[in-house]
Design a protein around this nucleic acid. Structure first.
Lengths: 336, 336
DNA sequence: TTGTACGCGTTATCAG
DNA sequence: CTGATAACGCGTACAA
């Protein structure tokens, strides 16, 4: 094993070996059309021979672009966000970008703080379900390119799911099964997803003359769901919709512990369709959102923004959702 | 709303406002003890007034350090790794570092490729359960600081769980319940965790004169577990140990679908103790590993390495594991 | 088409 | 303790 000296090979080394100037190396690599084929060839050969990789710091210093995008999520432990991360990383890499992941721990203050301190290190942000109030983020949005995910932002390009429609599907599904008293365990008030889901539910329930009670989970987590379960059971609701699958799984755990069967005695529907939703017994009925597509699309938006191919105020893309009914759907008339 | 011009405030601006040279600003901020209290005070005031944040690219260019660490994981969707990420991010931030997350998709080639291209952008790597063969990584280990997590590396500091002991606890637990024929659904062959768990199981089972069959899941994922379930059921095993909880959950799903009760007809134990393990009915018995502590410790190791407070070949820390028995543990004599 | 020279923002060296 | 100055590696006007 040769203890090869780990040297830092710079653009000058490549230039010397290729017998050209550093400027030509830079051009041959960045804009091949600008240099004569012969020269280009020698440069590439030399670069390969030396294993040359441009120094990103120097590149960033001169161009002002870091070729990194920041992905900000409330909780990477939630499968919805880790799945989005994978899609984002894949697409970003295709465009030559790396991903700086930021977990805010569901805390608005942390979110603002981290976005602030990292703003200079990335070319742009992908903000997933931001919890901070828009006014705190506004200053950064002017300085940095931003695309929001699952959040209706003012004057910010965003890619969202059609939450209201998903909620409508859920409500109509439950109503068709004969349920008249529904309960909704809500997520963070700052979440626009949450507002839209609640809006969709209310509309559908009102149209049917049925009843909807809503609770708020202390946090959109498994434990948050467990904690909310008893409140829900204290009502006369026969069907429960959760803000997301993670909450739903928490609810399910507590229901089971109290001997309440799903879907025999109560129906339970979540949102997001995370992989683990299929795992319970019975499996969880859920609203599927296009996670991979969301991630890829958001990256495309951001890169377009960075390359000036799109105006900042621009587009908003809403991707469809659809109900996934798993296992048996329960009796059409419920009693307790 | 004032459309404040988004200016780039540099060290020179601070210097001008404070009435000192750029060099003094740099010193006042980086090494306060090296400058007179009065000057220091004015500099800090000026920096705060202007909202000065050092340009990381320029800093990196001169010092050769990016203040970023790369966290490489096989699959961020696995709760074990997302939890470790959170711990790593927390500790890294305390030390002024950001985290570049890299998901290799369980693919050794991708792992090597990503580590190679990112090596210059980070000060060091945290390699979680690397799947690539050591020899491919060796060159980078010389050029870049590396700490492995859950992987026994040669000449690389590493923090691991006591897998063999956890496996022993599992085996003895199952043997005490009366099981004589155990099955192990293994993880990736390249995983040292997997090898150690298998070793621990074999030792305990052999000592008791019992029997152990091992299978290999096509991938250490939920789907991998589902796919392996039928093979396991084709044997006469009465208890199944999975390489990790995610596989175990996949197994459980398929068992349930086939009407096999856990723990009535078969016992199931996983590894890692992810949050969702408590969620199933009955909840999954699992081996808990110290996720947060692993993350924090690994960062500490890496930062020590970077600051020369520790020699590269150095320490190996093995953190204890313990069995978490949830719900009923099943009959002590099993029949099918 | 190619080379020279300068600047990006910061830190390190070396006088003072 | 402080200021001027040189470097870090690269991109890019400008000149040739």
């Amino acid at each position: 094993m040769t203890d090869e000296p780990v040297v830092t090979v710079t653009i000058k080394d490549v230039a010397r070996l290729a017998g050209v100037s550093p400027a030509s190396v830079s051009r041959a690599l960045a804009d091949p059309g600008q240099v004569r084929p012969g020269t280009r060839e020698r440069v590439h050969r030399a670069a390969a021979a030396l294993g040359y990789h441009p120094n990103q710091a120097a590149h960033a210093l001169t161009t002002g672009r870091t070729r990194m995008i920041g992905l900000v999520v409330p909780d990477i432990t939630n499968p919805i966000f880790s799945t989005i991360f994978q899609a984002v990383q894949g697409r970003a890499r295709e465009g030559g970008y790396s991903v700086l992941l930021v977990d805010t721990g569901e805390d608005p203050a942390t979110e603002v703080d981290l976005v602030r301190t990292l703003a200079r290190q990335v070319d742009g942000f992908l903000l997933c379900s931001p919890r901070a109030a828009q006014e705190y983020l506004d200053p950064f949005l002017r300085a940095t390119a931003v695309v929001t995910i699952n959040h209706r932002g003012r004057r910010v390009p965003c890619v969202t799911s059609d939450n209201a429609d998903g909620a409508r599907q859920v409500a109509e599904h439950l109503l068709a099964l004969g349920h008249r008293r529904l309960a909704y365990v809500a997520g963070p008030a700052a979440s626009s997803d949450n507002r839209e889901r609640l809006r969709g539910l209310r509309a559908a329930v009102a149209a049917a003359g049925a009843e909807l009670t809503d609770f708020t989970a202390v946090s959109p987590t498994y434990d948050g769901g467990t904690a909310a379960a008893d409140l829900v059971l204290a009502t006369s609701a026969t069907a429960v919709i959760a803000f997301n699958d993670v909450i739903a799984l928490g609810l399910l755990n507590r229901f089971t512990a109290r001997g309440i069967g799903v879907p025999q005695q109560i129906s339970l529907v979540g949102f997001d369709d995370i992989p683990f939703a299929a795992m319970t017994n019975p499996p969880l009925t859920s609203v599927a959102i296009a996670k991979q597509q969301i991630g890829r699309t958001a990256v495309d938006f951001l890169l377009d923004l960075l390359d000036g191919r799109q105006r900042p105020g621009g587009s908003r893309l809403m991707l469809p959702t659809h109900l996934i009914v798993r296992g048996s759907t329960g009796p059409s008339v419920l009693t307790r």
